[in-house]
């Protein structure tokens, strides 16, 4: 049995003071990403855990799709967060800092991983005299990071918008069917879809802007 210290404070904290005996503790408002970025940049160790918890799936999914290998994808994911932490002073905190920045780092690490593979292939080639196939190096779908960022943004939407978006754009249900499925008026469904798409459009714009 190994002994442990006190857990670090990694959970979101209550954002407001508890006032009055009758006050109801509402769900703690999520700390803004910008505030998290500020703490991350300042070297607060628990901020690294929070950043990892929120964006590890995004980075991992990107690496997995680009490399098609679970071991390599895990390695790249680890390298990305370690590199992010080590170069945190180069990051500019903003409300959309992390996805673009992490994806940017991931792009480099994926490219390094591919280069390493290519070297391995050449090494094998030298021994076995086989020609490397293009498939090994692979080509990246430039839309892929956007698609993953969008997927995460949809998953983080509040209900019923999230479900409506998934039914419309993933299940390809008609608006009438969605209204029937969710029991919501057709107008409400359409309005959620429009606002949802607009919201995603803004997210992507901001993420792209953040990556510059």
């Amino acid at each position: 049995m190994t002994v442990v210290g006190l857990p670090a404070r990694t959970r979101p904290r209550y954002g407001v003071a508890v006032v009055g005996g009758a006050a109801v503790l509402e769900e703690a408002p999520e700390e803004s990403v910008e505030a998290l970025a500020v703490r991350f940049r300042a070297g607060h160790e628990e901020a690294l855990g929070e950043v990892y918890d929120r964006w590890a799936s995004l980075v991992h999914s990107y690496a997995l799709r680009a490399l098609q290998d679970t071991h390599d994808a895990e390695d790249v994911t680890q390298q990305v967060f370690v590199a992010a932490w080590q170069s945190r002073d180069k990051m500019t905190p903003g409300p959309h800092t992390f996805p673009a920045w992490l994806i940017g780092i991931a792009r480099h690490k994926i490219s390094d991983a591919r280069a390493a593979r290519a070297r391995d292939v050449r090494r094998i080639e030298a021994v076995a005299a086989v020609t490397p196939s293009d498939e090994v190096v692979g080509t990246e779908d430039v839309m892929e990071p956007d698609r993953l960022v969008v997927r995460q943004a949809v998953d983080e939407m509040g209900e019923p918008r999230r479900t409506i978006m998934l039914l419309a754009f993933w299940q390809d249900l008609t608006h009438v069917d969605i209204a029937a499925t969710t029991g919501l008026p057709l107008g409400t469904v359409k309005s959620h879809l429009r606002r949802g798409l607009t919201q995603l459009h803004h997210t992507l714009e901001e993420v792209r802007h953040g990556s510059r």
Partner: peptide
């Protein structure tokens, strides 16, 4: 373009 970016599979969490 945003519409075109919809439809990705769910994200895959690392182990």
């Amino acid at each position: 373009a945003t519409r075109g970016a919809l439809g990705a599979d769910p994200l895959v969490a690392p182990p």
